[in-house]
Design a binder for these strands. Structure first.
Lengths: 236, 236
DNA sequence: TGAGTTATGCGACACAATGTCGTTAAATCA
DNA sequence: TGATTTAACGACATTGTGTCGCATAACTCA
């Protein structure tokens, strides 16, 4: 019976358990974000190559088929490798997908943060500059995000993406606003609000094939999140 | 090969195709929302009973196992019926799940709308009254939402839920603000913003086992969405 | 109520995907 | 170079899926 207990992949017991709880999601983020600064460990070239091929194959297949329809055999076939090899690296295709996305997110966050470090704090956060970088990043990788965000059945990913945005936002909110009073609103709620709104706007934007330029979307996003809906209607 | 083409369930060709595009999602909402006012058609009692049992069985199973782990056999076993019977009503378990949730959403929306009809427009939308009804609804069905929103791998559902909220919000925004100027911000973006933020806040709230009373969450939600983040920090 | 319709039960089937394994060959690292 | 690690290959048992025909029970409607 399939309800007994989680499947445990004996081939790589350290990272085999499928993510089902929040802790692991956050762990993954922390690790990933920190990874950026770490020197790349010495990994066997074959491993690197294999993982890159698997990642690319999945992404390519997702341009043609929906995620659930894609089997592990499909992925390994396209990558010209044996199906068993997949299991040497990943437990599920979901894991492969998020690991693939993760690196792109990390790059984006890293870019934003280093850019912001070189300038005074206040104006940049205030005028939607970082939102612009986000939307430009999405625009630069439309093909990918179109596939990831415009498809149903991408459950794990969606939660993980929102969690990711919320985690980064929370960190920045703490850094920037420090112990500022929030009138009883938890900082986590604020970061959730930002993450949810931004995610939802990005999905809408991507689904409709980027109907506005990134700068405009960034402005819309910034105004809605920071000034609120009332402001949008009030200033007429 | 599994990439050729969508699976078509020959048993019920009219609704057999799995939802993979946005149109169907919106269709579903429209139909569903309208359904409420329609008189319930004469449906064979056995059908009603079967569907109710399937729905309940799935929901119960989800309290114990994650959605992907649950098989159709598990569902029909618990409902004490034959596996083939499932396919007489639904094409996939995802379909069953969303149909189950759909009715609850419709009820909530219906409740809110009738309540609002009996009172003057302005103050109710303005002071977070409807948000409160939403969060109270979630609190009333914690067990269900805990399972649906706190699990990974619930892809289809998450997109559909956000779409649903956005659709309702858009309708209300159009009704209430009419042709009011929005400084170039599309109404759809506004509804997406509201839906994303609200969804994300609900997920956070549910995951953390409702750390604040519904009224407080409604207030937080209302302030963040309508007054924006800046306002939260500014008024100290 | 009884006749006709319809849903479900049951058992079976072919098929596809999964996770695992042992052995062999090849690539890589030091 | 030699030692180590990785991938290829083929195979296997297992599980879930979607479908079918037929018998029976439940329901509807007149």
């Amino acid at each position: 019976m399939s309800l007994n207990q989680q499947h445990v992949n004996k081939l790589h017991p350290d990272e085999s358990v499928v993510n089902t709880n929040l802790d692991e999601v956050f762990d993954m983020q922390q690790v990933s974000i920190n990874m950026i600064k770490k020197a790349t460990k010495k990994v066997d070239r074959r491993v690197l190559r294999t993982r890159k091929q698997l990642s690319q194959s999945l992404l390519e297949l997702m341009q043609q088929s929906s995620f659930e329809e894609i089997t592990i055999k499909d992925i390994t076939d396209r990558a010209d490798m044996n199906r068993a090899t997949f299991y040497l690296h990943y437990g599920t295709k979901e894991e492969l997908l998020f690991k693939s996305l993760e690196s792109r997110f990390d790059e984006l966050v890293h870019t934003i943060e280093t850019q912001l470090e070189t300038k005074p704090d206040e104006p940049i956060w205030a005028d939607g500059c970082y939102e612009q970088m986000v939307f430009e990043h999405v625009a630069d990788h439309v093909d990918l995000y179109k596939v990831v965000l415009d498809q149903n059945g991408m459950g794990t990913i969606i939660h993980q993406i929102i969690d990711y945005i919320a985690a980064v936002t929370l960190r920045h909110t703490i850094d920037y606003h420090d112990n500022q009073d929030t009138n009883g609103i938890p900082l986590e709620a604020i970061s959730r609000h930002v993450a949810g709104s931004m995610f939802s706007l990005i999905v809408w934007w991507v689904r409709n094939d980027l109907p506005h330029p990134p700068k405009e979307m960034a402005d819309i996003c910034h105004r809605l999140i920071n000034l609120g809906c009332d402001n949008v209607f009030d200033t007429d």
